[in-house]
């Protein structure tokens, strides 16, 4: 219990430190605030244009697509805030031989790697996403219950956790290769896989994106809960279980990599 309190305190301590840093570089912060907002608008445009071609994508109406886009924006701004910088620092430390300082600290290494950094510039995006969400719900004249919202938040957390685990496993590969620039850009590059409704994936694509590596479910499942159109509860259960297993694998792989690092590194 004492440990949990310590980790909770350190987590917020780091957030405070990064807020101080952000104030140091105000211009930079405002710039990125605007750029990330610009990209959100662009993305919205992109999919709005496509949806408006026939008004329907894989059984999702225009307004339902907007809700999906809102959920994506919320999720995406979260992972850009909390995962991108941490993973970048993690892989850089490994490639530059600076990883020892992580191992020397009396704190769980995986926790430290995920909490040492963050970025506030995506706040505006996050707010936009939330705004879009409620606007879409109103357009659709939907009023999800508290239970629905609770379930939505739960599933959203699992989605974030899943992306984290996948990203962390990829980043941990940095222990095993000599050098791979832009290893941190792999996950951001496949974000489109969860910008679209999962019904878009058929055949082999479906097996790949909804079973083997269920990135396709990441935004769709939480959205379906709010929209009251859950296609399959077993899929939700599958996704949650898959996420937990991936998290366990990420920890196991990390420990394995540390062993290798300490055995052969100089």
């Amino acid at each position: 219990m004492k440990k949990l309190i310590k980790y909770w305190q350190i987590f917020w301590h780091m957030r405070r430190l990064h807020a101080m840093r952000m104030l140091e570089y105000r211009a930079d912060f405002i710039f990125w605030l605007l750029i990330s907002f610009m990209w959100t608008i662009f993305n919205f445009f992109f999919f709005a244009a496509i949806v408006n071609v026939t008004g329907v994508i894989a059984g999702w109406s225009t307004a339902e697509m907007y809700l999906l886009m809102a959920v994506f924006t919320i999720l995406d701004s979260f992972i850009w805030s909390f995962f991108y910088n941490n993973m970048l620092q993690y892989t850089n430390d490994v490639f530059n031989g600076e990883f020892n300082k992580v191992l020397l600290k009396p704190i769980d290494s995986q926790f430290w790697l995920m909490t040492q950094n963050n970025n506030y510039a995506n706040l505006l995006r996050f707010a936009t996403g939330v705004g879009m969400l409620f606007w879409a719900l109103r357009e659709l004249e939907l009023q999800p219950s508290i239970l629905d919202f609770g379930l939505f938040l739960l599933l959203l957390s699992f989605s974030a956790l899943f992306i984290y685990a996948v990203w962390f496993i990829i980043s941990t590969l940095s222990f095993w290769v000599d050098k791979l620039d832009n290893i941190n850009e792999i996950v951001p590059n496949v974000r489109r896989s969860f910008q679209v409704p999962h019904q878009v994936y058929t055949g082999i694509a479906s097996t790949l994106f909804t079973v083997i590596l269920p990135l396709g479910l990441v935004s769709s499942l939480p959205s379906e809960i709010l929209l009251g159109r859950v296609s399959s509860w077993s899929t939700i259960f599958y996704f949650m279980t898959f996420t937990l297993i991936t998290v366990l694998i990420s920890r196991w792989f990390f420990n394995l990599s540390i062993k290798k690092y300490s055995g052969i590194a100089n």
């Binding site: 026939t54 994508i57 791979l180 832009n182 590059n189 489109r192 896989s193 878009v200 058929t202």
Partner: peptide, 24 residues
Amino acid sequence: SELIVWFLLSVIPTLILILVWQSI
């Protein structure tokens, strides 16, 4: 080898977009 990896990765978003159009 990096260049090849990046090329393959950059094709994925387009492939997904094509799937979207297919369903449209």
